[in-house]
């Protein structure tokens, strides 16, 4: 039993950044905007969070800064794709490249400096419970936030009027426009939400996961988050399953390697990808349902004047 608890704690750490970034991108894509710049927004969030926490000594300010920096980047993306109607795929890729370069430049003086670690919140009594205590009640604020965001997103998307409007905009922007909804405003907000979540994911990397700043430390997690959204067929619950599955298999294969399982390590390293894809494909077997979930206007530009 005692081996299980640290394993669960590690799985949570590995899954949280993926979950945060993916849930933000999900909302963005549900509104019909494909933002491939998740990796770029994440890394800018990471450096802003690290730098702010490092200079002020407050990880909470760091989180806010990480979020704001990523939102700023997402607004740039929004302006280019929504206002100027640039190609979303190309702009998203450019955003990632910009983010990676920009973060390296901003972070130059932070390389080699130890960071400020986001502390765990311990709920007295509850976090002392055996086995589940630390896992459920001893996490840091971003882990709780990630679950809250998934829950809220799920509720708002499918149980509220706002969600209905957002999905309408993503499925058929012409009709939504004809009904009098501001397609661009909805999309701007969704893009900003995506940015904020990517920023939180980045902050989690540089403040909680590995409290340090090194260039390119996101190491492709933004791309994994993007893939999760598609394989989870744009459903928040499935994104949660996917992110945790990915995290769990990553950690379990490390444990397997350390305890002497002698499968080729290349195979072991690809297991998280394989297992996650297979499971999510099985869940999403119902093609009809997947089709209804996929936003019909994804990636299509919209001009209110036409």
């Amino acid at each position: 039993m005692s081996a299980l608890e640290p394993m669960l704690l590690t799985i949570i750490t590995a899954s949280t950044p993926l979950l945060l970034a993916a849930i933000g991108e999900l909302v963005c894509e549900r509104s019909g905007v494909l933002n491939l710049g998740v990796e770029g927004m994440m890394i800018v969030g990471a450096v802003a969070a690290f730098g702010t926490a490092y200079t002020t000594g407050s990880p909470l300010l760091g989180i806010v800064a990480g979020m704001l920096a990523a939102v700023a980047l997402s607004l740039l993306f929004g302006f280019l794709t929504l206002r100027l109607m640039c190609n979303q795929v190309a702009t998203g890729l450019a955003l990632t490249i910009l983010g990676l370069g920009l973060s390296g430049m901003i972070g130059e003086s932070f390389v080699g400096e130890p960071g400020v670690k986001l502390s765990q919140i311990s709920i007295p009594m509850l976090s002392d419970l055996p086995l589940v205590g630390k896992v459920l009640f001893g996490q840091d604020v971003l882990v709780y936030a990630s679950f809250a965001i998934v829950g809220l997103t799920s509720y708002v998307l499918f149980r509220s009027r706002w969600g209905l409007i957002l999905r309408a905009v993503g499925d058929n922007h012409t009709s939504a426009h004809a009904l009098g909804y501001s397609v661009l405003r909805v999309r701007y907000l969704a893009v900003m939400f995506g940015g904020a979540c990517s920023g939180l994911a980045g902050a989690y990397l540089s403040l909680a996961y590995t409290p340090q700043w090194t260039e390119g430390m996101s190491a492709g997690r933004g791309w994994i988050a993007l893939a999760l959204v598609v394989f989870a067929s744009w459903r928040p619950g499935r994104v949660l399953i996917g992110a945790y599955l990915f995290g769990a298999v990553s950690i379990l294969q490390f444990h397997a390697q350390a305890s002497g399982v002698t499968l080729p390590s290349q195979l072991m390293s690809s297991l998280p990808y394989l297992v996650t894809i297979v499971v999510l494909v099985i869940i999403s077997q119902n093609r009809q349902l997947t089709k209804t979930n996929s936003p019909a206007c994804l990636g299509k530009p919209f001009s209110p004047d036409r």
Partner: peptide, 20 residues
């Protein structure tokens, strides 16, 4: 005890491997 992370540079995965 050995863990291969199949990467030269991935701070998160390196940390996970260390924890394991």
């Amino acid at each position: 005890k050995t863990i291969w992370v199949n990467s030269w540079y991935n701070p998160g995965a390196e940390a996970d491997a260390a924890k394991a």
